[in-house]
Amino acid sequence: MPGNRIKLKFTLNEKDVTIECPPGRRLIDIIRLDFKLTGTKEGCGKGECGSCVILMNGNTVNSCIIPAFRLADANIVTIEGLARVKGIPDIRSLFAEIQPLQCGYCASGVQMVLAALLLQNPKPDEREIREALSGNICFCSAYSGLLKSALHVVKHSKKRRYAKRISG
């Protein structure tokens, strides 16, 4: 079986895509190197830091520990496609209003987690937010700012969702 490759169809940021690649290629490499969607960051490469979190079929997953063969028919959303997902506010601009982070490397992972949380639970309390973010490491340790902006996102998300619906 020299140089085995598989052909896969999946949805990436609401576009149907087809790829052919080795079955063990990591999803993060497919996203960043093959599709040039570099908003998703790589940190530890072991599923521990949460920098590479994306949405797979509506759930947050660490893209560094997903091999290509799991992608068949999956629905993948990266930070670049987040604004297009129905039912969630513009998390990126809400985040920018507070500017909680220092280097920002963890931001996309954090925003993906908040998006998934808001999809499942439109009014999470602080405990639920902390629990949701428990897999996201901030490399600058700016956790209090992070929590502050997460609370800001949640507080304003309803209004923004409404505004988005009217304007959209």
Binding site: G3, N4, R5, T18, C21
Partner: peptide, 18 residues
């Protein structure tokens, strides 16, 4: 449609059958 691997990469990829 995206063809991902370059020839150089192919040689390095393990011969995995899933």
């Amino acid at each position: 449609w995206l063809s991902i691997l370059k020839r150089g990469d192919m040689r390095r990829e393990s011969q995995v059958k899933v």
